[in-house]
Design a binder for these strands. Structure first.
Lengths: 341, 341
DNA sequence: TGTTAGCACTCACTTAAGAAGAGTGCTAAT
DNA sequence: ATTAGCACTCTTCTTAAGTGAGTGCTAACA
């Protein structure tokens, strides 16, 4: 168990290092307000804290730097919630000010604002389209042998895909198919669409139109390649401003990571609500060994949810980012749920 | 006018520097095959070439490096067309191998392949949607006071946008409007849509439905915010591999440039066909003072066209990039025009 | 017993100086 | 006109010494 004084020293060191990015020395600490004991005493405490694994030195005679364990402790026990300013609130709420109605636009703008507010990089995961429900099907023929299938979901999202038509397919056939689809599949969540189509609707279509295997497989194909939750970034280049990322290779690895959608998906914890903080190697990713990721989630109506993340150096301003993410996720949930989309 | 020997020396220097990124010395040149004269002679020629502005030194006693003017001359007069390998041809053509039909997917994949092939950064501008013609309108009501408008174009592109409905609007009203729109506006290019809507169709709608100013302005709004040609990148991080971009600030500026869509648009020459090469400061952009941009354009059917660009260091492999861009733009045009989309 | 002053020691960082090497420009010989 | 020879320049690498921030330990002190 840590003594009060040790807690105090740890807190000051982390706070100071977050601000300055420089190893913190005993003399420097002794000058902080609230610190009543001498550098020598602080050195003793620091030696203890280092022994316990909360602090590290960059070399034998440098000041101390928080270790991952130090950050973890700080985040778990020393993080006092911060109140965000009305200015920040206004800025976050400005996402909705000009009545944008597409969820996608809202998320995109949120990403930008969040990165501007934090000066870190933001990653927003769009709400999971898989849970949207079909509102309307339509098929628009383009040429003799191709057409575009369009699926509108209950919150106004539009999926579309071009597919090839069997050669002997008439406009009235298309109309029939569209009617069948709209009769049978409205209200079905996208994730179940393919299954329903194959198991239930296929038979009906065959019955009404003879066997149109080509069309069916095309339709199934259409439903198979639904886009997953899209990813939006804000402030990708903000990393360049962090002194710990003046090393080309670190920035490069991060940038490369962000180009790979599959890898980025994996930094979001599954099925976790509330604010999650992952520090350094907790991210299980080489490129992010010196990064922390703070995630929150928002939801649209019941069930559908997306995620917000801020990725910054382990030395990031946890207090502020947590407060901002907390508010923004709440605001997004509130606003996106309010108006049915 | 340059002598034959000067041309030869300039060619060797540029070729060598493109490969090695190191200043080229007289001794090194004298060892190249085809060079029959001594280092001393070469030094004399180099002094002349420098005086003429084609070469530069990095310091008093370094080897020579091509100047911008040198590259320009090289590109204009010394660039012998290169034949691309069948391997490269296959790779480029693989874009179409799995019968992707969405133009957007094709472009996206092309960007990736081009960056892999060149190890530079590729930027592809999607074909200009403004010239697509309306194939079908539809409006799908979402809630009592909102609906999504969908425009399908003749090549299968789908635009959609949520808008608010006047409060006293019935489903049958919507049907009427959709019918009117489809009767009047099919075949109209997107760029003229707003104008036609305001000038011609508005009156018809009013006549049939009484004055629905709210709806009209919403519809006009829908057509106003058409997405411009989208931008796709390939190999954004390839720049990190170029030795001249080991400087953090240069990479940062480039990355920031690529985040700004408006600025990126401006690197594409307007209304130019064929291969265009812009070297260094010819790009009129601070971030690209040490970059060259090679652009080509492709077209989809008649009229609509998009652009391809490769951005790399001024020291880029012009021969190869020109050959690849030339082939790819031709292939894209051929394939995208072939099947009506 | 906990706290603190004092001091030797460590290590990164900076500056200076010298040595090596690549390449040039000029002059004189071919 | 071409080229060999040579002095000169400038970068880069290495070594050495000096500086300063910060520590750990010991001994004195409250």
């Amino acid at each position: 168990m840590l003594t009060n004084r040790q807690l105090q020293v740890l807190q000051v060191i982390v706070d100071d290092f977050i601000m300055s990015a420089q190893p913190v020395g005993s003399r420097q600490i002794s000058k902080k307000e609230g610190i009543t004991f001498s550098p020598a005493t602080i050195r003793n405490e620091m030696a203890d804290l280092e022994e316990l694994g909360f602090l590290e030195k960059t070399h034998t005679s440098s000041g101390r730097v928080p270790s991952e364990k130090g950050y973890r402790f700080y985040v778990d026990h020393l993080l006092k919630p911060q109140i965000i300013t009305t200015n920040e609130i206004h800025k976050i709420q400005s996402v909705f000010q000009d009545r944008i109605m597409e969820t996608e636009q809202v998320i995109r703008k949120s990403a930008t604002i969040l990165s501007e507010l934090t000066s870190y990089t933001s990653i927003l995961l769009g709400p999971d389209v898989q849970l949207h429900k079909v509102k309307r099907f339509s098929i628009v023929p383009l040429t003799a042998d191709s057409a575009v299938a369009i699926i509108v979901t209950d919150n106004g999202h539009v999926e579309n895909r071009i597919f090839s038509l069997p050669s002997d397919f008439s406009p009235s056939d298309i109309e029939k198919v569209v009617n069948i689809l709209n009769e049978r599949l409205i209200g079905v969540p996208l994730e179940q669409l393919q299954m329903k189509l194959e198991l239930e609707t296929a038979a009906v279509i065959k019955q009404h139109l003879g066997t149109y295997d080509g069309l069916l497989s095309s339709l199934i194909d259409v439903t198979a390649h639904q886009s997953e939750g899209k990813i939006f970034y804000g402030g990708k280049t903000n990393m360049f401003n962090q002194p710990e990322f003046h090393d080309i290779n670190k920035v490069r690895m991060l940038m490369e990571l962000m180009e790979k959608t599959t890898q980025i998906q994996s930094i979001f914890p599954m099925n976790q609500s509330g604010i999650q903080i992952r520090i350094g190697s907790e991210n299980n990713h080489l490129a992010m060994e010196e990064c922390s990721v703070i995630t929150a989630s928002y939801s649209v109506g019941e069930g559908q949810s997306g995620s917000i993340a801020i990725i910054g150096p382990t030395r990031m301003d946890y207090r502020r980012v947590v407060a901002l993410l907390d508010f923004m996720s709440g605001d997004l949930t509130r606003q996106l749920t309010q108006k049915p989309r």
